[in-house]
Amino acid sequence: MPEETNEKKAVRQTGSNTIVPVKADELVEKAVEMKKKGLRLSQACCSWVNNQYEISYSFADDQTLDYITLRILAERTATISSISEIYPYAAFYENEMEELFGLNIRYIDLDYHNRLYRIKTKAPFLPEDQREVATDETKKISAPDAPETQKEDAN
């Protein structure tokens, strides 16, 4: 995955747009750093590419209009620590990542336990063969599993 600044585009735009790779255990520390600099958490998302998670936490500087994204690569069974103690509103993004992608995030401040969207299928944005993989800290998921998914995995 190319992780470069996008200065190639004919720039008439102020503010940089960078993606910085970090390790999963450095996330909380980096978040504190961002908070000290006065940056605002703009968004957090993840995607499933090349059999691993690509998690992005983006921070925006409202004065210089810079945009810094912390990029974490994680395995399916990995556990990420939530930054919602530092940025309380990160809770929504993390709940969404958990519900849509089955990403294991612990210590979320306001935890919806997979009931943010109340989707019937577990981790709908993951490919089907990945959904039932057991995680190290299996969290109790209150949404019922769709019977079809279970049948397919049994095959």
Binding site: P2, N17, S42, Q43, E54, S58, Y67
Partner: peptide
């Protein structure tokens, strides 16, 4: 490649993230 686009919607800042790997379909849109 991937790119974060930011525009000002009437309601505020909206962020569009696209990631593709050479296929006609994107891998991820956020």
């Amino acid at each position: 490649g991937e790119y974060f686009a930011r525009i000002e919607q009437p309601r505020g800042e909206a962020i569009f993230y696209s990631e593709g790997h050479g296929k006609p379909n994107l891998d991820r849109f956020r």
